[in-house]
Amino acid sequence: MQRRMTLWAWLGIAVALVWTLLPIYWFLKMSLLTPDEIARFPPPLIPLDPTPAAYFNIFGFDYQVTPELVRRASGQAGQIINGLINSLIVSIVVTAITMLVVVPLSYVFARLDFRFKQALLITILLSVALPPVSTLIPFYALYVQLGLAGTLFGLIIVTLTITIPFVTWMLIGYLRNLPPVERLARVDGYTRFETLVFIVIPLARSGIAVAAVIAFLFAWNEYTYALVLVNGTPANTLATALSGFLFQHPEPSHLAAALVLSILPPVLVAYFLQRHVAEMNLVDPIR
């Protein structure tokens, strides 16, 4: 490997950054534009007179741009704040339950041999392939009967069906690469359960942390189920609040600001993820 950065490497990084940042920049720019600038055609490449007004507006505050000009709070502010809180609740609860369930599950599949292992594993992995559009109606029908439609609890249950299979599959690969500490633990008299809690989990903490973060991302970004199950109810999430925005032809800067807001928690998450990149080496979970 070359130690020195060549021109090509610089160019490659530049292209990668532009590719990644352009869509985000375009929205960040939009969130900072004044209404006149947004209405202007052609759209400006950079905001000439950037203002954070939209960010105040979507939280329900007026913003004094000039003594004469006040940008009014968004009518959607209640939904945005409500959605933000709901999204946080759903994502945190889903992440917690997912990890509670997935760590023992993937540990068992990664480190033990037992009958029916392959069949069970394939069942779990197959559920990754289910398209949400096919299960929407059955879920909706069930939820209406059980009174779960429009509740956070109902949304949490459905979201778990997305996070559990994927995170299980991911952690199996990671756990399989741990050294064979179980034998040591058996000689020291740890029970199976103690081995998992006191040895394996502390040992695998960085991999488990990455898995938790990925579960959080899935939950935070879930939209299809939320659209049908909680849209327009008090249990709406940030995703549905945002799309509510979209279809009501809102102030574009408000939409952009809300979207930028929805990216912020995952950005912190991305910073965390990249530090643990070396941990995530996949193996074939079936073998």
């Binding site: 050294p179 064979p180 500490v181 040591l184 058996r186 000689v187 008299g189 040992l203």
Partner: peptide, 17 residues
């Protein structure tokens, strides 16, 4: 294993990492 009161040293001197 534990109730046999044996001690074991594993390949490449495995320890809890």
């Amino acid at each position: 294993p534990h109730s046999r009161n044996i001690a074991m040293v594993f390949q490449s001197a495995l320890l809890y990492p």
